[in-house]
Simulated scan of single mutants.
Amino acid sequence: MKTLRQLAALTILAATTLSAQAHRPFLLPSSTVTAGNTPWVTVDAAAASDVFFFDHMPLKLDALIITAPDGSKAKPENSSTGKFRSSFDLALTQTGSYKLSLVSDTLMASYKENGSQKRWRGSAENFSKEVPANAEDLQVTQRSSRVETFVTNGKPGGKALEISGSGLELQALTHPNDLVAGETARFRLLIDGKPAANAHVIVIAGGIRYRQKLDETLLNTDASGTFSIQWPSAGIYWLEAEIKDSNNVKAPAKTRAASYAATLEVLPQ
């Protein structure tokens, strides 16, 4: 009974601590480093309060892009979507590093119609069809997001980690599948291919459900968009960044919000 009371208290504390936090999107592979003749990985895609647990909703796989080591696009297999997560399998037919990305670019609008507050989300193509031309107090934001993880078969390398130059992206100065506890990794945050200076980055270790504090690491990029982190211990980590500005905004939006999230595995020494 004591254990049950302790678990209940931790659950209440976690709910209180995280209630104000947005649900965090992630791609979680069964393994980030493999070897052998065409090994497989299974990947879960979800948004959750406790990262790497499944307590909110699945992520749709419509916008999934898998970049193989030679730069070609690989196809997932056995895709499915359940109540709390989507899943797929990936055969690693090439040696080198793969990048798995969920990329979206939408518009979000708020406005009043006949005195009632309305909210809308969709593509730029559907905006004029679905949002009234005479909408009052119209506010439109361009929202782009990128959710990623990385998997390597054998020796790291290849073209998969190349930057697209669109939206918020992570440039790996340290390979994302060569992260070791106690060592320092360096990354560069880019927005539309250019350094994202003075941006805020949050890093959270998995296992939120089982500790009383979030224990996030808060970082800032320098003038070149670069930041460093010394990994305190081995495990799975969630990295997130977001930028809000009015640059490169497409009409009818006047502002944009670009977000990036990555799942990284840190191995023991």
Rank of each mutant, 00 (worst) to 15 (best):
L90H: 03
T263G: 00
Y210D: 15
I202T: 15
K250M: 09
L264V: 04
E169S: 10
A47N: 12
Y98F: 02
A45D: 04
A185T: 04
D55C: 11
R186A: 01
T32K: 05
S123T: 15
W40Y: 06
E148H: 10
S123I: 13
K194Y: 11
P25L: 06
L173D: 03
E77W: 00
N78Q: 13
T38F: 02
S110H: 06
T174S: 07
L190K: 05
L90Q: 09
L218K: 14
T174V: 12
H23F: 12
E242T: 10
A258T: 10
N177S: 04
S30I: 07
L267R: 05
T38C: 10
T106P: 13
L102N: 00
A205I: 13
T255E: 09
L13T: 11
A160G: 10
N247T: 14
F150D: 01
N37L: 07
A133D: 03
A241F: 12
S259A: 12
K99W: 11
E113S: 03
S30K: 11
R209E: 05
F52G: 04
V140E: 02
G235N: 12
T174P: 07
E148D: 08
T32Y: 04
Y260H: 03
A46W: 13
I204F: 09
Q142V: 02
T17D: 13
K254H: 09
K250G: 07
I229G: 11
G71C: 11
E125T: 10
E265T: 12
L102C: 01
T226W: 09
D44M: 15
S79Y: 02
V140I: 03
S164W: 02
K159G: 05
W120Y: 01
G122D: 00
G96A: 00
K118S: 02
V249G: 08
T81F: 05
S228F: 01
L107R: 09
T42R: 15
E162G: 08
A22Q: 11
P176K: 04
E125D: 10
W231M: 00
L161V: 03
I236C: 09
S87I: 04
L18I: 14
E242A: 08
H23N: 12
Q117Y: 11
N134M: 08
V151Y: 01
A234Y: 07
F53K: 15
K73M: 04
R146Y: 06
E242K: 07
Q269L: 06
S246E: 12
D245F: 03
R209V: 06
F227W: 05
D89N: 03
Y98N: 00
S144C: 13
P268M: 09
T16Q: 13
A45Y: 07
S101V: 07
L64M: 01
D222Y: 00
K213G: 08
V51E: 15
S86M: 09
F54N: 01
T184I: 01
